[in-house]
Measured scan of single mutants.
Amino acid sequence: WVPTKREEKYGVAFYNYDARGADELSLQIGDTVHILETYEGWYRGYTLRKKSKKGIFPASYIHLKE
């Protein structure tokens, strides 16, 4: 896992994603996520609506905010 280059990196989910394991994070369309790390097509972070739950999710489900 590699920390993100920018201190504040955010994105928005444009697909729903159902977590398949305890380390994964479920997403709903429109969720804003804070991205902490990246690795081979995956991000690690949390949604702003539930900051206490961190997990991994596919990068392809996220539109990055500039």
Rank of each mutant, 00 (worst) to 15 (best):
residue 1 W to Q: 08
residue 1 W to A: 08
residue 1 W to D: 07
residue 2 V to I: 12
residue 2 V to L: 10
residue 3 P to G: 06
residue 4 T to P: 10
residue 4 T to K: 07
residue 5 K to W: 08
residue 5 K to T: 13
residue 6 R to M: 11
residue 6 R to K: 13
residue 6 R to A: 13
residue 6 R to V: 11
residue 7 E to G: 15
residue 7 E to P: 10
residue 8 E to N: 12
residue 8 E to C: 14
residue 8 E to I: 11
residue 8 E to S: 11
residue 8 E to D: 10
residue 9 K to A: 12
residue 10 Y to Q: 05
residue 10 Y to S: 04
residue 10 Y to K: 04
residue 11 G to H: 03
residue 11 G to A: 02
residue 11 G to V: 04
residue 12 V to P: 00
residue 12 V to I: 12
residue 13 A to T: 03
residue 13 A to P: 02
residue 14 F to A: 13
residue 14 F to G: 07
residue 14 F to C: 15
residue 15 Y to V: 15
residue 15 Y to T: 13
residue 16 N to I: 06
residue 16 N to T: 07
residue 17 Y to A: 01
residue 17 Y to I: 02
residue 18 D to Y: 11
residue 18 D to V: 14
residue 20 R to K: 13
residue 20 R to W: 06
residue 20 R to G: 06
residue 21 G to P: 01
residue 22 A to M: 09
residue 22 A to T: 10
residue 23 D to M: 07
residue 24 E to A: 03
residue 24 E to Y: 05
residue 26 S to C: 06
residue 26 S to R: 04
residue 27 L to G: 00
residue 27 L to Y: 01
residue 27 L to K: 02
residue 27 L to R: 00
residue 28 Q to S: 11
residue 28 Q to H: 11
residue 28 Q to I: 12
residue 29 I to Y: 06
residue 29 I to N: 03
residue 30 G to M: 02
residue 30 G to S: 02
residue 30 G to K: 01
residue 30 G to R: 03
residue 30 G to Q: 01
residue 31 D to C: 07
residue 31 D to V: 07
residue 31 D to S: 04
residue 32 T to I: 15
residue 32 T to L: 15
residue 32 T to G: 08
residue 33 V to S: 00
residue 33 V to D: 01
residue 34 H to P: 00
residue 35 I to G: 01
residue 35 I to L: 14
residue 35 I to K: 00
residue 35 I to C: 04
residue 35 I to S: 01
residue 36 L to D: 06
residue 36 L to Q: 08
residue 36 L to C: 15
residue 37 E to I: 05
residue 37 E to M: 08
residue 37 E to Q: 07
residue 38 T to G: 06
residue 38 T to E: 14
residue 38 T to M: 11
residue 39 Y to A: 09
residue 39 Y to T: 11
residue 40 E to F: 07
residue 40 E to S: 09
residue 40 E to T: 06
residue 41 G to P: 00
residue 42 W to S: 00
residue 43 Y to D: 01
residue 43 Y to L: 04
residue 43 Y to R: 00
residue 44 R to C: 14
residue 45 G to C: 07
residue 45 G to P: 01
residue 46 Y to Q: 04
residue 46 Y to S: 05
residue 46 Y to G: 02
residue 46 Y to K: 03
residue 47 T to I: 15
residue 47 T to H: 12
residue 50 K to D: 15
residue 50 K to N: 15
residue 50 K to A: 13
residue 50 K to F: 12
residue 51 K to L: 08
residue 51 K to Q: 10
residue 51 K to W: 10
residue 51 K to E: 09
residue 51 K to C: 15
residue 51 K to S: 11
residue 52 S to N: 12
residue 52 S to L: 08
residue 53 K to I: 12
residue 53 K to H: 10
residue 54 K to F: 12
residue 55 G to P: 00
residue 55 G to L: 03
residue 56 I to H: 04
residue 56 I to L: 11
residue 56 I to K: 09
residue 56 I to T: 06
residue 57 F to V: 01
residue 57 F to Y: 01
residue 57 F to S: 01
residue 57 F to L: 02
residue 58 P to F: 10
residue 59 A to F: 03
residue 60 S to I: 11
residue 60 S to P: 05
residue 61 Y to W: 04
residue 62 I to H: 00
residue 62 I to R: 00
residue 62 I to C: 08
residue 63 H to M: 14
residue 63 H to K: 14
residue 63 H to C: 15
residue 63 H to E: 11
residue 63 H to I: 14
residue 63 H to Y: 09
residue 64 L to S: 02
residue 64 L to R: 04
residue 64 L to W: 03
residue 64 L to P: 04
residue 65 K to L: 15
residue 65 K to A: 11
residue 66 E to C: 14
residue 66 E to G: 13
